[in-house]
Amino acid sequence: MEKITNIDILELGSPEEKSSPWSSTILILRLTSSNGNVGYGEAPTTLMTHPVLESMKEVSRIFQDKDYYNIEANNREYYKNAFYISKSIEETAALSAFEIASWDLIGKDLGTPVYKMLGGVFNDKIKAYANGWYSDCVEPEDFVSKAKKLVNKGYKAFKFDPFGNNYDKLSTEGLKHSVSIVSKMREELGDDIDLLIECHGRFSTKYAIMAGEALDPYNPLFIEEPVHPELEFGLYDFKKYVNTPVALGERLLNKEDFARFISSGMVDIIQPDITNSKGILEGKKIAAVADAFGVPVAFHNAFGPVQTAATLNVDYTIPNFLIQESFEESWPEWKKSLFTGYTIENGFFRLSGKPGLGIEVNEKILNESRTEAMEPLNPNEPPWVVSGTFKQ
């Protein structure tokens, strides 16, 4: 029996992170097995780095000395002990990191990529959409100028939040300004570029509908989290008036959550996050639930390179894959160089095909990036927005 013999929980970060304050720190898990192989996982951090880190310590008490091939049994053992896990993103995030690292170990033991253990390649081209690219963009011309630079690199899809500092409500001026940004993007980039509208769950239902109706004419691929997450029943009203597909899922924590949203018709495109919804196998199950209802999948992916690699391994295998989020163009250099093993070429992701997640760590950068800091807290804008955009 191969087992987990050593567990290292590493917080990394740097003040170089300018675009995405929510991921200025990342949590990397390193599992060492009894045969000497090393597997990596990752947990999300959005203003919860230290709580998630502490939860990872709790999960380690369950996983220490366990046979890491027993993915289902180990997850269920933690589930049995973690009384609040169905509602605690700190716990599901911590558990996800261990699940991902277990798959990395198994793949390295067997000499095969994780995606080959999940059904093999179904999608040989993984279309990326750029996010995080629009830091300090306020006026329509700002957005267009930065987007065109990425079009020149081959990107054909862009997600962005055009709503400035409007929160809960959307002012008349705020609505006009948002429309001016989206209309200018469509006019300048053309109809062959996908526009994805990010709301960050910031609106009450009435104002979400106002925004959705106003942006419908510009044919977005989807509008993400249009209403506050606790107002999910407002999505029924939203969908009565707005034609743009609704996407959500980064705040849902398991396949049961997704089954409820999908079966009740509240969502058109799901966005699970591999690093907070119990990992790779649960992600595959969530995609299967969605496929049964004809719902496409666009995994949320806003943190670090281990998350990206884990997500791509699932993307390769699912028939209902739609598009994949990418922040790579806005990452600071240390994060870009922390792991190697996947590439983005002409707007498409490709994995290396190496065993496990397919990635290799740069030990020097890993050691130099260690920190114990909390994420920055800017009194002028919340940490979930792209930097410099929470203004009108």
Rank of each mutant, 00 (worst) to 15 (best):
D8H: 13
E11V: 13
S14D: 10
E17D: 03
P21F: 04
S24V: 00
L27T: 10
S34M: 09
N35I: 09
N37F: 11
G39A: 08
A43W: 08
T45R: 02
T49K: 11
H50I: 12
P51Y: 01
P51A: 08
P51M: 01
P51C: 04
S55W: 06
M56Y: 05
K57F: 03
E58Q: 08
V59Y: 04
V59F: 04
F63I: 05
Q64I: 13
N70I: 04
E72W: 04
N74L: 10
A82D: 10
Y84G: 10
I85E: 03
S86G: 05
A93W: 04
A94E: 05
F98Q: 13
W103K: 00
I106K: 10
G107M: 11
K108F: 09
L110I: 05
G111D: 07
L118R: 05
N123V: 07
K125L: 09
I126F: 04
K127C: 01
Y134S: 14
Y134V: 09
V138N: 11
V138S: 11
S145I: 10
K149C: 09
N152E: 15
K159V: 01
P162M: 05
G164I: 05
N165A: 13
D168I: 14
S171W: 03
S171V: 07
T172G: 10
E173C: 02
D191N: 15
D191K: 15
I193K: 11
H200P: 07
G201T: 03
T205E: 09
M210Y: 14
A211Y: 07
G212E: 11
A214E: 06
Y218W: 10
I223W: 02
I223H: 03
E224T: 05
E225D: 14
V227L: 07
L231E: 13
E232W: 12
E232Y: 15
E232Q: 12
F238E: 00
Y241V: 05
P245V: 08
G249Y: 02
G249N: 05
R251W: 03
E256H: 14
I269S: 02
I270R: 06
D273F: 02
S277R: 05
K278Q: 13
K278I: 13
I280R: 05
G283W: 02
A290N: 10
A292C: 14
G294P: 07
A298T: 12
F299E: 00
A302G: 15
A302T: 11
G304Q: 09
V306G: 01
Q307G: 08
A310C: 11
L312H: 02
N313V: 06
N313Y: 03
D315W: 00
I323M: 13
Q324A: 11
W331G: 00
E333Y: 01
W334H: 00
W334Y: 07
K336S: 08
F339G: 06
T343S: 12
F349R: 02
L351T: 15
P355M: 04
L357E: 05
L357N: 06
G358E: 01
K364L: 07
K364F: 03
I365V: 15
S369V: 12
E372D: 10
P376E: 00
N378P: 01
E381G: 08
T389V: 07
F390R: 01
Q392I: 09
